[in-house]
Design a protein around this nucleic acid. Structure first.
Lengths: 225, 225
DNA sequence: CGCTCTATATAGACGCCGTCAAGATTGCTT
DNA sequence: AAGCAATCTTGACGGCGTCTATATAGAGCG
């Protein structure tokens, strides 16, 4: 996980033109959001953090909304790397065999764990990316919409790959399966992050249950009786 | 708790003491939230709506947060009625047989539809109840916490009842099942409300897929291969 | 070099916001 | 009738997003 980003250029007594402001605004905003949450981020504080006047950021972002969109956009990219969407392999904590000719429940379980892991360990980030704040008002950046939908499209592809590697014929439409299973992942993340019903101590048990659910549905056990 | 109160008493030129303010504040707040969303609700506007000075509401709610908690609390009660938790029967759109000795997939499907229906048709309300805003800051009212947890507990009971009515032995721990399936419902609601990945045109197909998923998992088809 | 043009940064102001403090008004209790 | 607590009011403070007008710096060109 490559966070931080050098930002080691300090050009003596600050010049009138900052030169690197957009980048630093994004980084500072991401830090504030990660540490204190989206609600704690104000344009004025952000500007002060970077060392410019209150209105300077408005030359790089038309809006506070636009800035948040840009931050969320980067979040989606990091998210994709962390969860490693798509049919390619990814080795994190345990052994992972996403490319192996046979698909087993452990692969699904691993994927789920990666998703939940990202959400819980980047709670405020996740909240920003998927929270209603950005999406409700129809003013989100086109690039953010693209970035977000790209993630989902990759997941649908992954589901298709799973279905191909599964022994049986696909019993469920890949899109429907992707929608419902993503809902499970997203809902679990939200409830965990907000601490509503789910306790982080039960993460392992819940992800295992979810994995079994996903797995059974993927194999389409229609003759279960 | 004496709710209702018609609020049809208009005693000529408004008296100094409002008499019914707390109730009217809650109603007005609920209306604003339902129509324009939580973000559009300000204490000042709310006070103006009801016809009192800006600070009058603070004599009935210590905080804006406290007021929102109270609104959300009522939301949970309405939610429970709409979804009709627990083992008792509920007849809405279709035929419902939650009390019938046999449990079929249609019962589950109906329940899911009720849940999603509430969320979509009371989007801003749902967002308030389950959104991170209230839950993140640890300052939520104890009564709200109770109310919310009561809903989940009822659902766990319902799951247990389902398992009892199911032909097989319970294959999954009821709590785990409740957690994961609620996650699915909640995630689907969020994604639908915020319009992130899910389209309301596909609600029926998605709920059906989810119902199948729930059903199969509930019956614990372990010998699916 | 000087000149203009444009991108960038700044201070000031406006109208919102949540909420604290002090004072006014009312109804209940004795 | 007196006192008291509940209720409502105006005033004020600091913070917010962001619009406007102004200042400065660098880039391209003669």
């Amino acid at each position: 996980m490559t966070n931080s980003i050098a930002s080691n250029t300090l050009p003596s007594s600050k010049p009138y033109h900052h030169g690197d402001l957009r980048r630093q605004l994004l980084d500072a905003a991401a830090n504030i959001i990660r540490d204190e949450g989206e609600a704690a981020l104000s344009m004025r504080k952000l500007a002060q953090e970077v060392g410019v006047s209150r209105t300077a950021p408005y030359h790089h972002f038309s809006d506070k909304q636009a800035l948040l969109c840009a931050v969320a956009e980067e979040g989606f990219r990091r998210f994709r790397v962390h969860v490693s969407f798509g049919p390619q392999a990814h080795s994190s904590g345990e052994t992972n065999a996403a490319l192996s000719p046979v698909l087993d429940e452990a692969t699904i379980r691993n994927f789920i764990r990666n998703y939940i892991d990202f959400a819980v360990n980047n709670a405020e980030y996740y909240r920003l990316m998927f929270g209603g704040h950005l999406w409700k008002s129809q003013q989100l950046t086109a690039s953010l919409k693209d970035e977000a939908h790209a993630s989902f499209k990759l997941y649908v592809d992954q589901v298709r790959a799973w279905q191909q590697f599964s022994a049986k014929e696909a019993a469920v439409d890949a899109l429907r399966y992707a929608q419902v299973s993503w809902s499970t992942l997203h809902g679990m993340s939200c409830l965990l992050i907000d601490g509503i019903y789910l306790d982080s101590a039960a993460i392992a048990a819940m992800t295992d249950t979810a994995a079994r659910m996903f797995w059974q549905q993927l194999r389409g056990s229609e003759f279960s009786g």
